[in-house]
């Protein structure tokens, strides 16, 4: 059960500080533009963002917020999911979409598995997984004519 307690919104303040940094970077970038039309908008927006962030930090210093505590959650699995997807994206141009997609799929099945691996699942899941990946691959390349990457490694 999540319980509520009051605390200062330190996280929010840190995020606001990072956003101020982003705003400053954006402002700095706008001085590079050749055309007057192209800096009016980003400058206004970046400026407003910095002002809102400062207001948020000031507000957070005086007002505590309600914080929920969370139940047992698995951070390694989260990181694993994102890593698997990013690796798939990076590998795509080299190994081709199909292989990187299959690898990512397999990795995420393993990450998302909370039930015990019975023999039935060991057989069914890979089969279903391959069918889904191949099915989508076929749909996208042959029906929707999307030129999915075929992989530079194998073409030379």
């Amino acid at each position: 059960m999540p319980t509520e307690l009051q605390s200062r919104d330190t996280g929010g303040m840190i995020v606001a500080a990072i956003f101020i940094l982003i705003g400053v970077l954006a402002l700095w970038d706008t001085f590079d533009y050749t055309d007057a039309d192209s800096f009016v908008f980003p400058r206004t927006v970046a400026g407003s963002m910095i002002v809102f962030c400062i207001a948020l930090i000031a507000w957070s210093l005086v007002r505590p917020i309600d914080v929920e505590s969370r139940g047992a959650e698995s951070t390694p699995r989260r990181v694993g999911l994102v890593t698997a997807m990013l690796i798939a994206a990076v590998l795509m141009p080299y190994t081709g979409f199909l292989l990187s997609g299959l690898l990512a799929f397999a990795a995420i099945v393993w990450l998302a598995m909370y039930d015990p691996w019975t023999r039935g699942r060991l057989i069914v899941y890979p089969l279903v997984g391959s069918a889904i990946v191949l099915g989508f691959y076929f749909l996208f390349t042959k029906v929707l004519l999307v030129p999915l990457p075929t992989g530079r490694l194998f073409i030379g």
Binding site: L81, M85, F105, A106, A112, R121
Partner: peptide, 10 residues
């Protein structure tokens, strides 16, 4: 879940 998550991710 072990099939839903990878399918959606894919």
């Amino acid at each position: 879940k072990a099939l839903l998550v990878p399918t959606v991710a894919f």
